[in-house]
């Protein structure tokens, strides 16, 4: 403790976090463990209920699928953007970030108009005579997936563009002189070196999808609850703050565990010697 200055600099932020984040969290979560005595009862009963479990698994499944789709769509897009000339790169970045600039309620309503029973897609397919009855697309898991991908893809792209821009183009050329065609060079050089970006992007997309409220509420409806909408229902509609606290902690722990897992996968693939020469 020779130098106290850094701690002094930290204080304002720390106070803000403790008062407005940590304390409220404790006051919500503490009652879920304390019922006259210390107990895990609320958690055990949460996971014994089939409905609760279905919401939990849906949330995990949807979040993972969204993350996967964002990786598949984001990596090639980011590679393309990172490799275009500076002149166009700014414009392309602006275009891919555009969805972030609009309100998430408006964005979700747009998807309601597209996916709904009388929406654009059903209308189109029926007019073409491909289908006679509208397909149910809105208020399904898939609708949540589509809405969330649209919402979070920009985060994946900006993270990856930054990482891919820093990959020395000579490495790709070196791979090509050694006999790799464009695709092989991409798979064997660019992709492994983009891994840190893919991990960061995945964590952003995953935790974003897991905790998003508006999109699952508007596109999933009440039949396809996610943890966030379920939490809201418990707290605001049912006034059951005990269950809301349980769900809140489950969401936090799930996010942390999945982040850890992503990092472990990354470490397994990315073993390029830690020490610096």
């Amino acid at each position: 403790m020779k130098n106290k200055a850094p701690f002094i600099l930290l204080t304002p932020g720390l106070i803000l976090l403790i008062v407005f984040m940590f304390l409220p969290l404790v006051t919500i979560i503490w009652p879920t463990f304390y019922d006259g005595k210390l107990t895990f009862g609320s958690y055990l009963s949460f996971f014994q209920d089939n409905y609760n479990l279905s919401v939990f698994w849906r949330t995990l499944r949807v979040s993972l699928i969204v993350t996967l789709i964002c990786i598949l769509l984001g990596v090639p897009t980011a590679y393309y953007i990172a490799r275009t000339s500076k002149k166009w790169r700014g414009l392309m970045m602006a275009m891919s970030l555009f969805p972030l600039l609009t309100n998430s309620v408006i964005r979700s309503f747009a998807w309601i108009n597209i996916l709904g029973t009388n929406g654009v897609i059903n209308d189109f397919l029926m007019k073409l005579g491909i289908i006679t009855e509208p397909i149910k697309m809105l208020y399904t898991d898939s609708a949540i997936v589509v809405g969330s991908v649209y919402l979070f893809l920009p985060l994946m792209i900006i993270t990856l563009v930054g990482v891919i821009e820093n990959i020395d183009l000579e490495m790709v050329e070196a791979a090509e002189t050694l006999g790799a065609n464009r695709l092989t060079a991409f798979m064997k050089v660019v992709l492994p070196l983009s891994l840190p970006g893919i991990i960061v992007g995945s964590i952003l997309v995953f935790s974003g999808t897991l905790s998003a409220y508006t999109t699952p509420q508007l596109l999933g409806g009440n039949q396809n609850m996610m943890l966030s909408t379920f939490l809201y229902q418990n707290a605001m509609t049912l006034g059951n703050w005990q269950s809301a606290g349980v769900i809140a902690l489950i969401m936090i722990v799930t996010t942390i565990i999945v982040m850890k897992l992503f990092n472990m996968i990354a470490a397994k693939f990315d073993k390029r010697g830690g020490e610096h020469a």
């Binding site: 000579e170 490495m171 990315d270 390029r272």
Partner: peptide, 10 residues
């Protein structure tokens, strides 16, 4: 190459 362009992950 001038930068050697070694693959850092290998």
């Amino acid at each position: 190459f001038q930068s050697y362009a070694l693959f850092p992950h290998l």
